[in-house]
């Protein structure tokens, strides 16, 4: 359900999963204030010119579904931000990464729209870098379609300052025998919301959603992911790991939904948090909705401080407390990078 233009963002409501854990009022107000201003930013790519268009084709379904952020989605579409439509035909793209850069100018609101298609047999490695100049707000609509037998390796690195806010509303659609893996990392921002809807639309499709973050100070990281299994015999994995310091807050809402008929789906969803401070907080809610048969699905969520025995073991070898903590924090996130970088055939 979309809000009418004049309707302010929804009031937090316990029954509304989207806002249940966030601090969205403040963010919404701040973002809404900026939405009224003129958006300035840059959306650039090094992809070959023949693959790039600055507008969307007529009738393209390039708008990602939001996970309860309809207000922002609509405002972003209205703001008329830049559009990039990239179509990558069969072949290898970006063995040294196809860069996509989004830069949000100081004090501004920017809402670009990114639509990338990997045509059948295309293999691409894309690095998406979002940077914020001071005190800016970004709402980025991202849509990736991975056609049959194509393979996408996508890294999103978001960096900004502690007066900036960001929101990514994303969709990754995997068709038959398509493979996609996304790794998101976000650092420095006051408030970041990452939404990804993964859609598995064909047999043997495979999707890996990964995220590794180190929120600190008073940062809020709000992560939402959905694994929608529309077709039978597809596989999806989501692993979101965060190392929290200071008074950082993480919110995680994850959902595996296996539609009727999507038999033999194989899906896994996990949110794990390492708490380096007693003031840090995590609200995590992974969910399953299964409407098909012979399905293998599991989900989990855990938040824990550093294992004191491990910390002592490192310190007993002379490694100082801060260094030992840093080593263990790196070790905690290591699994995410390992999964992102491992060869396709050995994906768990």
């Amino acid at each position: 359900m979309m809000n009418d233009d004049a309707t302010p963002p929804e009031v937090p409501n316990r029954l509304n999963e989207d806002w249940r854990y966030g601090r969205p009022q403040q963010f919404a107000a701040e973002l809404a204030a900026r939405i009224n201003g003129r958006g300035t930013g840059e959306l650039t790519t090094d992809a070959p010119a023949e693959c790039v268009r600055r507008s969307l084709p007529e009738g393209a379904d390039a708008c990602p579904p939001s996970i309860g952020s309809d207000y922002f989605l609509r405002r972003a579409l209205q703001s008329g931000g830049d559009v990039l439509h990239i179509v990558l035909p069969r072949g290898e793209w970006g063995t040294a990464e196809v860069p996509l850069r989004i830069r949000c100018h100081t004090g501004s609101f920017y809402a670009p729209q990114l639509c990338v298609e990997l045509l059948p047999g295309s293999r691409a490695h894309i690095l998406e870098e979002h940077t914020h100049d001071r005190n800016s707000a970004l709402v980025c609509l991202r849509s990736y379609t991975v056609h049959p037998d194509a393979e996408l390796r996508l890294e999103l690195r978001e960096t900004g300052d502690d007066a900036s806010r960001t929101m990514n509303i994303s969709r990754i659609q995997c068709r038959e025998n398509a493979r996609a893996r996304q790794l998101t990392t976000c650092s420095g921002l006051a408030w970041a919301r990452e939404e990804t809807t993964g859609e598995l639309c064909g047999a043997e499709a495979e999707l890996l959603l990964l995220s590794a973050n180190r929120p600190e100070g008073g940062q809020w990281l709000d992560q939402r992911c959905r694994q929608l299994h529309h077709a039978a015999g597809a596989r999806s994995r989501a692993l979101y790991k965060n190392v929290l310091r200071d008074a950082a807050t993480c919110i995680f809402g994850g959902n595996i939904r296996v539609e009727p008929g999507a038999h033999e789906s194989d899906a896994y969803l996990s949110n794990l948090n390492l708490m380096l401070s007693a003031e840090a907080a995590v609200h995590s809610l992974p969910q399953l909705e299964i409407m098909a048969d012979r399905v293998r699905c599991s989900h989990g969520s855990a938040s824990a401080p550093i294992d004191p025995e491990q910390l002592f073991y490192l310190r007993s070898r002379g490694i100082g407390e801060a260094d030992a903590q840093a080593i263990l924090a790196d070790a905690f996130l290591h699994e995410v990078y390992l999964l992102f970088n491992q060869p396709r055939s050995t994906q768990p």
Binding site: Y313, R315, S316, G318, E321, A331, E335
Partner: peptide, 23 residues
């Protein structure tokens, strides 16, 4: 501190050495 003791030359081979995954 435990790390200072180690750097001062003390070492303990543990009865049950700890597993540290990811390192």
């Amino acid at each position: 501190s435990p790390d200072e003791r180690s750097r001062a030359g003390l070492f303990l081979a543990f009865q049950y050495p700890v597993e540290v995954s990811g390192v």
